[in-house]
């Protein structure tokens, strides 16, 4: 018994650095946000003591001057747009990133390292500056429009800026490397002789892709999709700059609440909402992959 207790103490002692790190950097901020979301807003920023669910009520209802609640779809609309844009960004970077990862995985080691370096290169520059560059590209009379006008292909403007499309482009651009890297990692382990074996067994190019390459890189695809979807959902740089604040996303909305609106509890409540969406998405993913595994066994 004594040995058991000693053992337990030892285990906790050895675990403590990890527990402290997770607790301090991950659990504590979350708990603070959760607590804030149930407190009263201080008009000058920060929170005032007292328990209230006002912040969550605000998500769905507007309080009139006479204190009656009226349903409002503004925030649900923002949540919906955020999910939709994050999905578009995920699918878009999957379509763009998959062939890139495949191409890199088929090169020799030296070229692979060079190409991987190039993929991560944008990370070395500030995100804000890179997003400003996209404004130059997409704006009226910008890098895209001017040449088109010069050759007489375009009359007027494409009006690309400050749209959902511009935000999606910004998100795809920002998070594409997070799609390429995990897919590359699982493809790098792929035995390319299997492709030969499949084509020997009457599989054409598409069937080889569908039956061999995609199933064997599924772990990377799933990881890449999560890594793109989750931050896209909470992104605020691309929506702010390319959406011009006209097309709010969850990230920008939260940012707004903590900065200019000075409604910290509401910001915290939206953040909790975002967290819930992400958790649900991950749970759905886990369940579908579990079902797939169960089907394979059967």
């Amino acid at each position: 018994m004594a040995v058991g207790a000693e053992q337990t103490r030892r285990t906790w002692w050895l675990l403590s650095p990890a527990l402290l790190t997770v607790g301090f950097f991950m659990v504590l901020p979350m708990v603070i946000l959760l607590v804030f979301s149930f407190m009263e807003a201080d008009p000058y920023g920060g929170v005032d003591p007292g328990f209230t669910v006002e912040a969550y009520v605000q998500l769905l209802f507007e309080r009139d001057f006479d204190d009656t609640l009226a349903y409002t779809g503004i925030y649900l609309g923002i949540i919906w747009r955020s999910i939709a844009l994050a999905l578009v960004a995920t699918v878009g970077s999957l379509i763009l990133g998959f062939p890139v990862a495949y191409y890199i995985a088929r090169q020799n080691t030296r070229t692979q390292n060079l190409l991987l370096f190039l993929v991560t290169l944008p990370f070395w520059t500030n995100l804000l500056i890179r997003t400003y560059a996209w404004i130059l590209i997409l704006s009226t009379d910008g890098v895209i429009e001017q040449p088109l006008k010069a050759i007489g292909f375009l009359d007027g403007t494409l009006d690309m800026m400050y749209s959902n499309g511009a935000i999606a482009i910004g998100l795809i651009y920002t998070y594409l490397p997070l799609m390429v890297l995990p897919i590359y990692a699982s493809m790098e382990k792929l035995d390319f002789r299997l492709i030969e074996a499949a084509s020997d067994l009457y599989a054409g190019r598409y069937r080889v892709f569908r039956e061999v390459i995609v199933p064997l890189s599924t772990p990377g695809i799933v990881a890449g999709c999560i890594l793109v979807f989750v931050p896209s959902l909470g992104a605020f740089v691309a929506p702010d700059l390319l959406g011009g604040g006209r097309k709010l996303m969850l990230g920008s909305l939260i940012h707004l609440q903590f900065a200019s609106s000075r409604n910290w509890p509401f910001g915290a409540a939206i953040a909790m909402c975002l967290l819930a969406i992400v958790m649900i998405a991950l749970m759905l993913q886990a369940r579908s992959s579990a079902r797939r595994r169960a089907m394979e066994v059967a």
Partner: peptide, 10 residues
Amino acid sequence: NTVFQHYSLF
């Protein structure tokens, strides 16, 4: 059809 040296089973 080919039987490969390293089998190459899926």
